[in-house]
Design a protein around this nucleic acid. Structure first.
Lengths: 114, 114
DNA sequence: ATCGCTGTATTATGGCAGTGATGCAGTATG
DNA sequence: CATACTGCATCACTGCCATAATACAGCGAT
């Protein structure tokens, strides 16, 4: 299940998430407008809006109508915790199972880092 | 991206792969018929057929029309190698990136095992 | 008030993936 | 040949995704 085969609105969601986690968009910052981000990513404004929608439902962004969408206070920690929980619960177990089944040791994986 | 949210035919494919890797279906053995496996898994025969289709394209099973599908010779090693390569190339990198981003250490993951 | 930006709602359309019901074709067995 | 099993092909239905063309509503600066 690669990133390339994901729906666009989910990929956009990931891009935003990573940007917030990496501090590119700090708390209080305004996110790119729907139309601007659509142009930047070569996507449809509606698709971007759909991607943004989930964030406001989770309280990660604050919407100022007519102005823009802003990274909510505490969003970074909240996002981090949610992603950590998801990783431990949903991502890691199948990975570990596959490593056991294929007899892949951690040694083989921890060398080629950037 | 959980196992639960995968298309049925991909889940069936995984079940077969694991059964071959674990030796449940040895090389030369006949796989369950499309209809039998469909009943067993509560799926549609066509969906099972679609799951089987990929295996014959990869030369992992030999089809004897009117008889059944048989695990090809060398299928286990071939499958293992393919899955190892796919894991190292496609699965592990995003996992490692996410671990770095979320600052998840291996220590947290290697304790609660079965 | 006007202009230019912001997000949002509406409706419609095309494409594609997943699933399903039915029937046909090949093979072994009697 | 008849039967009962195999895989496989065709057609159709459904839902999700993405896009499009508008239009509307809120805010700020001139």
């Amino acid at each position: 299940m690669n990133n390339a085969s994901k729906p666009v609105y989910l990929k956009l969601r990931d891009i935003i998430s990573e940007s917030i986690l990496d501090g590119e968009y700090a708390e209080g910052d305004m996110l790119p407008s729907v139309r601007a981000f659509a142009v930047e990513q070569g996507a449809n404004p509606l698709t971007v809006a759909k991607a943004y929608q989930g964030f406001q439902e989770d309280g990660l962004v604050t919407v100022k109508r007519g102005v823009g969408m802003f990274v909510a206070s505490g969003a970074k920690a909240k996002l981090r915790d949610a992603q950590r929980a998801d990783f431990i619960k949903n991502v890691w177990p199948p990975v570990e199972r596959q490593m056991k089944r294929l007899n892949i040791k951690l040694d083989e994986l921890l060398e080629n880092n950037s």
